[in-house]
Design a protein around this nucleic acid. Sequence first.
RNA 1: GGUGGGCUUCCGGAGCGGUCAAACGGGGCAGACUGUAAAUCUGCUGGCUCACGCCUUCUUUGGUUCGAAUCCAAGGCCCACCA
Length: 385
Amino acid sequence: MIPTARTQPPGTFEILHEDAHTGARTGVLWTAHGPIETPIFMPVGTQATVKAIDPRELHEMNAQIILGNTYHLMLRPGMDIMATCGGLHRFMGWDKPILTDSGGFQVFSLAGLRKIKRDGVSFQSHIDGARFFMGPKESMEVQRILGSDIAMAFDECIPWPCDEAYATNAVHQTLRWARRCLEEPHAEGQLLFGIVQGGEFTELREYCAKELVAMGFDGYAVGGVSVGEPEPALLKGIADGVRHLPWNKPRYVMGLGDLWQMTQAVSLGADMFDCVIPTRNARNGSAFTRSGPYPVKAGEFKSDTRPIEEGCTCPCCSRVSRAYIRHLLNVGEILGVRLLTLHNLHCYLTFMQEMREAINADYFAQWKEEQTRRLRPDGIRARGA
RNA sequence: GGUGGGCUUCCGGAGCGGUCAAACGGGGCAGACUGUAAAUCUGCUGGCUCACGCCUUCUUUGGUUCGAAUCCAAGGCCCACCA
């Protein structure tokens, strides 16, 4: 699958194939814990675990890289324990690549519990209310101790809607902090990605992207999308950000998303994605399929003997029925949540695998059309199809 | 056979003369979820209109009262203890 004969140094990004009709491309990004194939979906494992899933199972479903979170791990278990336990990989028993988010998203999601200052953000812990400070320096220090393969710059993720003055200010803040992150020491072989902000303002996105590129990061992310805006605005934000990023560096769209949105983003030239949706929504009872999501806990699946998704080869679908999963979810059995999470991740991962194959074999545009027909048939979501 | 307690909307269970279609919990149903404060959260849950409103309900029957799920009488069933 990966054509390179020998191991490449961390940060090497080999572009394998470019689509003739869109911005899509396949590639391999090398990290200190091995290569990842792009376009890729990265399961989210905020608190040193992809919720409900064992790393062994992640291996089995061919997950190549997962996320961890600076903010959460700093609070619990804390960096002294992380250091004693030898970093995040050793701690959680996962030896493939890890990307850590910087805590920038918590500036957005914990808006009621923090105050933004010039050098960083003073947070009040969502756990016990304890006050602490996190800025670019602190975030990088934590990410260094965690020993992630890819660290993210500490940024200010803004909400939607957001006025231009506020967004401009957040971009300046993000750039100032990005510069600071670059100056901080990294872990051995650790890559650092900068994050493009700018909200819905095209010129701001452009400015932010160009400034970051001038600083020289190992990769670039588009942040501040999928924060509640309507889909067209989301896609525009991605396009505005990706457009100005260097061709030869990986491009990561943060927080995406939905299968269809990812195909659109890849088409615009994006390479990496992460999203809590397949895992969180599994816990909340919805199944993702190649024909869209549906609520397995709905009464209509009470005695449905079909698997969650027909034709799926995941450990859930190859053994049990919708009726069984619905029953487990209904009575609150932990296995229900586990099996459905397994399925949803499998669905996302195989979707990306197929997408890479389509790009490599030069039929991405056609494949994308097919997916659109299945995932967005007149805007109506399929229900257990 | 005796004495006492009880029967409330799918279930459990408040209510003890009007402010009661009836608290609350469960269950059921529906919806939400996009760098995880989320195995979470929201709404609905007698009928008709689904707004206002109207209609039929709180074991049964009869009664007291301007007015009863709430008071009285009798019947039915259940529970406890004593025989």
